[in-house]
């Protein structure tokens, strides 16, 4: 059952997204109005530890549990795709109040209406796949 560990990680992720309130539309709105430190504290503390841990993994060339070196795949260098794509994503993040992870958390929490957001996200992904050749990257 090599997938069991990923199920456990997913469950932990779902619980953390719910209990941190990062899956709450209200928290996202409040963040973009700069009226609470909460979301900035979450992202900031995750990043501080993330930067430190990533540095340690590279410095000591740590291996995964399968004994493979831990790989970080660098993203392609570009400006336009990250800026344009980022802005579109940000518009959706604020409007629907959730990003791709919390969508699943909210399904589990029992919000049927979030399925509309998931449906929209699938259509959006599909449209990107169809039109990506015509977009500046």
């Amino acid at each position: 059952m090599k997938y069991l560990k990923f199920l456990a990680i997913g469950i932990l992720f779902g619980i953390v997204m719910y209990k941190s309130e990062a899956a709450s539309w209200f928290r996202i709105f409040e963040m973009f109005r700069f009226e609470s430190f909460h979301m900035y504290g979450i992202i900031g503390s995750a990043l501080t530890l993330g930067v430190l841990g990533t540095w340690l993994i590279k410095k000591y060339k740590l291996k995964s549990i399968d004994g493979e070196p831990i790989k970080f795949t660098p993203k392609d260098k570009s400006f336009s795709r990250y800026m344009y794509g980022g802005i579109l994503f940000g518009l959706g993040w604020a409007l629907a109040g959730s990003c791709p992870g919390p969508i699943y958390t909210l399904i589990g929490a029992g919000y049927i209406s979030i399925l509309v957001v998931l449906f929209g996200a699938l259509i959006g992904t599909f449209l990107y796949g169809v039109f990506r050749g015509k977009l500046p990257h």
Binding site: K75, D76, R81, Y82, Y84, G85, G86, I87, L88, F89, G90, L91, G92, W93, L95, A96, G97, S98, C99, P100, I103, V116, V117, L118, F119, G120, A121, L122, I123, G124, T125, F126, L127, Y128, G129, R132, L135
Partner: peptide, 13 residues
């Protein structure tokens, strides 16, 4: 909202 999330996330990678 969902459309923008899906399209934007893939565009931005």
């Amino acid at each position: 909202g969902g459309l923008l999330i899906g399209f934007g996330a893939r565009y931005a990678g």
